[in-house]
Design a protein around this nucleic acid. Structure first.
Lengths: 343, 343
DNA sequence: TTGTAGGCGTTATCAT
DNA sequence: ATGATAACGCCTACAA
């Protein structure tokens, strides 16, 4: 059985003995076209199952209608939800997603950005690998007039487009809540120091503690590179001190799960001896043995939507005003405190 | 600052006062070209940062180098791992992924397949929505000579390309293992009846029970549509019987978690009063409160790799032999039994 | 060794 | 109201 060839306007034109431009116009509802001609064309197009070749159109328009999305890991629920948001918003606007994972490897991230540039994506939405500090590869895209939007794991710089949750205020609130539960020896297992997200958490933590008229003990601040080993080391340091913490805030719920694992192995009663607080409030939490007693929702889906909306916006204004609008867009979403699974 | 325009071979040709074909040949290492000409061209190309416009090339070749990947949910770890496998294999071959989720909605699935066809993907890799029984939308692609590979949630039909885990044998083994633990009243909470995966599980279950010289009690077989409510209903029916099961096999680990939730709420000691067995063996399992005591690994990453490899294969032979090779490819991976978290 | 020309599918700008 | 033609970026058969 011969594969059906995709019909083209040329094909239709030939069969109807009219010119391609007539067909093109008839199909696109051009006003000045004979009523019967239009009908004949449409009928045949229908019959042949004609579909315009988007590739050809995009090529002509110098657009691909593809947005590159580059994230650290799809396996983290946070990012898979973010992708869903991005995808649904993209679909609304006829855009499609070109998907890539950096696996938190800056080198790989750079490569993928390059690949995406070669593929001529119309824009790039990216959440940075944990150690990335050099944004030249992404900025290179902007040189070629390809908009770049960062989300969640964003650069500190002012002059970039970004969507993120402000974690400062809500971290202060979390510390306050723990204090209200009579937990005054609060420790923090923070993420990689370079991450904006880590810096915000730390600032909020310090502010939260000091606002209670307490002195911040830097012995109570550890970092993890997000690996299990590193988190174990952090826990070890915290539990070895003569003054042990009675509350621990972890960077996210994956760190939380590792920290809890360690705690259980060392005869610590989770959420009794030590209260655990965390960030993310993932759906998974419902099913784990020892969820954090308090957590911070960062709305990955909403962030995805917002990032894509910003992208559309950037591309639209790129089209409309030729002049270089070099201001960057920032969008800050408000994170929310969630106590023991209740919203 | 003016956006740097992407240079084209035409641009290079003009600057060097040679023809575009000379530039094209020089760049592609064509043999019969003047050494100095070649060098001059390459030098300028380098200087301008020339990159061939893949869109144009693909357009000419009538190829997009994009493979559509359509899955039910990215949030399920099984699928996110499968995607990773697909992606890494695709990258090896310069292909990129166009990503879509059906959210287990057949109507949406159909729409996305349509969109992907219009986008002229070179192939489609798909894992079906749970209720899908009509494959015409996908088969339509094959009519247009676009290869389709199903994975994991595949149609029963023989004449389709598919990659999947054979669950029959391993299900028999799981039943046998439970019997060996002296659990003879084994129940099954199966998935949607239409799924091949469900049918296989059921066949394996029945075979496993009968091979132990026991009569299969269909009172012990329930179905869930994978929603929590539906699973609760199934559990309710099972626990209400006068002869209660002392082992329950669930369709996958999401169903497992819901079933366990229900059990706990009804004073059942998990993995004591009732042993729980399941399918998938997800990484998540490490962290949940009551993991199944025995589980079946279905190798999502490997399935992804295999599906993409099959796709490459299909596309290659499509190119090479014009003749219609209408045989379909099947690949069956062997699933593995995993006892209480040990591999 | 290098240039010319045609074509991929579509739309836009001229003519007629 | 319709047709002819150029253009998008690249490749390639053919010509010189």
């Amino acid at each position: 059985m011969e594969p059906t060839k995709m019909p083209t306007i040329k094909e239709i034109a030939k069969r109807l003995n009219v010119s391609v431009s007539t067909v093109s116009r008839a199909l696109s509802g051009h006003p000045r076209i004979g009523l019967q001609t239009r009908e004949r064309v449409k009928a045949l197009a229908q019959e042949l199952g004609y579909e315009p070749n988007q590739q050809a159109i995009f090529f002509k328009q110098k657009k691909t209608f593809v947005i590159g999305v580059l994230i650290p890991h799809i396996r983290e629920e946070f990012f898979s939800q973010a992708i869903s948001g991005i995808e649904s918003e993209a679909m609304e606007h006829q855009y499609t997603i070109l998907f890539g994972q950096s696996f938190d490897d800056t080198e790989r991230e750079k490569q993928i950005v390059e690949t995406m540039r070669r593929q001529r994506v119309d824009g790039l939405i990216i959440s940075l690998a944990k150690n990335t500090v050099d944004y030249t590869p992404m900025m290179a895209l902007e040189k070629y007039d390809i908009p770049v939007v960062f989300f969640d794991r964003v650069p500190l710089e002012k002059n970039v487009n970004k969507v993120f949750c402000n974690l400062y205020d809500v971290t202060v609130d979390m510390v306050k809540w723990l204090m209200d539960q009579d937990r005054r020896k609060i420790a923090l297992i923070n993420g990689p120091e370079k991450l904006t997200a880590s810096k915000e958490r730390l600032k909020g933590f310090i502010q939260g503690v000091s606002s209670q008229k307490l002195k911040v003990d830097m012995q109570f601040v550890e970092n993890t590179d997000l690996s299990r080993e590193s988190t174990y080391t952090a826990m070890e340091k915290l539990l070895q001190q003569k003054k042990k913490p009675n509350a621990i805030i972890t960077f996210n719920e994956y760190v939380h799960m590792d920290a809890v694992q360690y705690a259980l192995q060392h005869q610590v009663k989770v959420n009794e001896d030590i209260f655990f607080g965390s960030y993310a409030n993932l759906a998974i939490t419902t099913h784990i043995a020892y969820p954090p007693i308090i957590s911070i929702e960062q709305y990955p889906y909403k962030q995805g939507i917002a990032a894509m909306k910003m992208m559309i916006d950037l591309m639209t204004r790129k089209q409309e005003q030729k002049e270089t609008t070099s201001d960057s867009m920032h969008q800050e979403l408000k994170a929310t405190l969630v106590v023991s699974g209740k919203s």
